[in-house]
Amino acid sequence: DEVRLHVNGHTIEFRGIDEEIFKILEEAAKRGADEEELRRLAEKLLR
Rank of each mutant, 00 (worst) to 15 (best):
A29G: 05
D34I: 08
I12N: 02
D34G: 11
R31L: 13
A33N: 06
G32I: 03
E19I: 09
E35P: 07
D1W: 10
E43K: 08
L38S: 00
I17T: 06
A28G: 03
A28Q: 10
L45F: 04
D1N: 13
R47C: 14
L46H: 05
D1L: 14
V3G: 07
A28R: 08
I21P: 01
E37F: 14
G16P: 07
G9Y: 00
A33L: 13
K44A: 11
E13W: 00
L41E: 03
D18Q: 04
V3F: 15
A29W: 09
E27W: 06
E26R: 06
E2D: 09
D1Y: 15
D34P: 08
G16L: 01
A33R: 05
E35V: 14
H10L: 11
F14A: 08
L25N: 00
E27Q: 12
E36K: 14
E20A: 11
H10P: 01
E36F: 12
G9P: 02
K23W: 08
E13P: 00
L46Y: 03
R39D: 03
E43F: 02
R40W: 09
E2S: 14
V3I: 13
T11L: 07
E36Q: 13
G9S: 02
A33Q: 06
L25I: 07
I17D: 05
F14G: 07
E43W: 02
E2T: 15
K30Q: 09
L41F: 05
I12P: 04
L38Q: 00
K44E: 14
V3W: 15
E27D: 10
I24L: 13
R39K: 08
F14D: 05
F22T: 06
E20P: 08
E35R: 02
V7Y: 01
A28K: 07
E13Q: 01
R39C: 07
G32M: 04
E43Q: 06
R15W: 15
E36C: 07
A29S: 07
H10W: 00
K23F: 08
A42Y: 09
R47E: 14
R39N: 06
I21A: 11
R4C: 07
L45V: 06
E43M: 04
E20L: 09
I21H: 11
R47V: 13
H6I: 15
R4F: 10
R15K: 15
E19H: 07
L38W: 01
E20K: 11
F14Q: 06
E20F: 11
E2P: 11
K30L: 09
G16C: 10
G32D: 03
L41D: 00
T11S: 06
L46T: 14
L41N: 01
F22K: 06
R47G: 14
D1P: 12
R47F: 08
E35G: 06
L5P: 02
V3A: 08
E35N: 05
L41H: 02
L5H: 02
E43Y: 03
K30I: 12
I21G: 15
T11G: 02
E27V: 09
G32A: 02
I17M: 08
A29K: 02
G9W: 00
I12G: 01
E19F: 07
I24P: 01
D34H: 10
L5S: 02
L25Y: 01
R40F: 11
A29F: 07
A42T: 03
L45P: 04
E27C: 10
R15C: 08
E37V: 13
R31V: 09
D1G: 14
R15G: 14
F22Q: 06
D18Y: 03
N8I: 01
K23C: 04
D18F: 04
A28H: 13
G32L: 04
G32C: 04
H10C: 04
L45G: 05
R4D: 02
H10G: 07
L25M: 03
R39Q: 06
E13K: 04
I21C: 10
H6F: 00
G9H: 02
I17S: 06
A42L: 08
E19Y: 07
L45S: 06
G32H: 03
R15A: 14
I21Q: 15
F14Y: 03
I24V: 12
L41T: 06
L5Q: 02
R15E: 15
I21L: 12
G9T: 01
E36Y: 12
A29Y: 06
E37C: 14
L46E: 08
V3P: 07
E35M: 09
N8M: 01
L5R: 02
L46S: 13
A42R: 01
E13R: 04
E19C: 06
L38V: 08
D18T: 15
G9C: 04
L41R: 01
E20R: 09
I17W: 02
T11F: 14
L46M: 12
R47M: 13
E26Q: 13
L45I: 07
R39Y: 13
R31W: 11
N8C: 05
E20T: 12
L5C: 06
F22L: 10
E19D: 11
V7N: 02
L25H: 00
E13A: 03
R31T: 12
I24M: 10
K23L: 09
E36T: 12
R15M: 15
E20G: 10
